[in-house]
């Protein structure tokens, strides 16, 4: 997959499909811009006119609550007109092909697609086939990537921990099915985290996970030592095709984050989760609602980070010159 697809001829962001292949400076620019957008929440009118007159379509072929609503709010705060399409209720269920859906929306003068799809590579496919003036943002494709989630996680980490080069970050749980884990590992590596440790049973790790630039632990008790940031992952039962686990209660016993286990990490460690959380499966309610949890902060930050990514992808593009 060509990463140049994401950049225009001047090296500026055009589509945001994956963290892979993006320079550190670009990621830092996104984080910085998101930080300045946080102030918009203090305004009586929580809106700035950057994308006034632009039309953005949220194309969600897969369920989502947080991602879809924060994308929608982010677009609205930038003054864009936004339309959220749940594909279950659209013509796709009558047999229309993906490309036909895209062509029809293009005919309605749309400027940006935000795409979530169950198949890896769907957003890339749309970016390759959409008209030149359209930007595509990947809101999660299959098990491949969820780059805006990774950026809001990086933003939240930077809010609490500042310097990435000193950080040891643990990603715990269902790495195998997790596009969030993949994108987070790429983002943390690009931003220069000291260590990325994946903690999971062997059955929930992709083959040769070490090649992604991580260290591996199969025990939560051992793995949490010296950790600054814990990213818990949801057990993705809907993507599990075979019996990878004995049971949920057995999983919680070995890999669930309890207050006792949290004490094994650094005392000021923060606990993150992309949501939705399965209480009592991967995380104890006492931890999810506890003082070290920044889970709801992640949700709030999702708005500013998605504003930043949409604004950057929509700023000066070659096709606007003519």
């Amino acid at each position: 997959m060509s990463n140049n697809l994401q950049l225009n001829s001047e090296g500026k962001l055009k589509h945001f499909l994956t963290i892979e292949g993006l320079e550190k400076q670009l990621l830092v620019d996104i984080l910085d811009l998101a930080e300045s957008f946080i102030g918009v929440n203090d305004q009586r009118i929580k809106k700035i006119p950057l994308l006034r007159g632009k039309s953005i379509v949220n194309l969600f072929f897969e369920n989502s609550t947080r991602t879809r609503t924060t994308f929608e709010l982010a677009a609205k705060r930038l003054s864009a007109d936004v339309l959220s399409m749940s594909i279950a209720t659209s013509s796709t269920s009558k047999g229309e092909s993906l490309l036909d859906t895209i062509r029809n929306l293009e005919a309605m003068y749309v400027d940006m697609f935000v795409v979530r799809h169950g198949i890896s590579g769907a957003a890339h496919f749309i970016a390759q086939h959409a008209s030149k003036h359209i930007s595509v943002i990947n809101a999660g494709d299959g098990q491949h990537a969820h780059p805006t989630q990774a950026m809001l996680d990086m933003f939240t980490i930077r809010q609490f921990k500042q310097d990435f080069s000193k950080l040891r970050v643990a990603i715990v749980g269902d790495i195998l099915h997790s596009r969030v884990a993949r994108s987070n590992i790429q983002a943390l590596n690009t931003l220069g985290a000291a260590e990325i440790r994946v903690i999971a049973p062997k059955t929930l790790l992709p083959a040769q996970v070490e090649t992604m630039g991580v260290t591996v632990s199969h025990s939560l008790a051992d793995g949490l030592k010296d950790i600054d940031v814990i990213i818990m992952l949801r057990l993705q039962k809907e993507r599990m095709t075979s019996a990878l686990l004995p049971s949920e209660s057995e999983y919680f016993k070995c890999f669930g984050l309890t207050p006792e286990r949290l004490k094994l990490a650094k005392p000021d460690a923060i606990v993150m989760h992309p949501g939705p959380i399965n209480r009592g499966v991967e995380i104890d309610s006492k931890v999810a609602d506890g003082p070290q949890s920044v889970i709801l902060k992640q949700v709030s930050n999702g708005i500013a980070i998605r504003m930043a990514i949409m604004a950057m992808a929509m700023q000066k593009q070659e096709s606007f010159d003519g």
Binding site: S36, Q315, K316
Partner: peptide
């Protein structure tokens, strides 16, 4: 006041990522 997000030439010049938020 930082007016970067309110400029009328955003689509021509883009936005500087290091805009500091307004402080009122």
């Amino acid at each position: 006041l930082d007016i970067s997000f309110y400029r009328d030439d955003f689509s021509q010049i883009g936005v500087n990522p290091n805009v500091k938020p307004s402080q009122l």
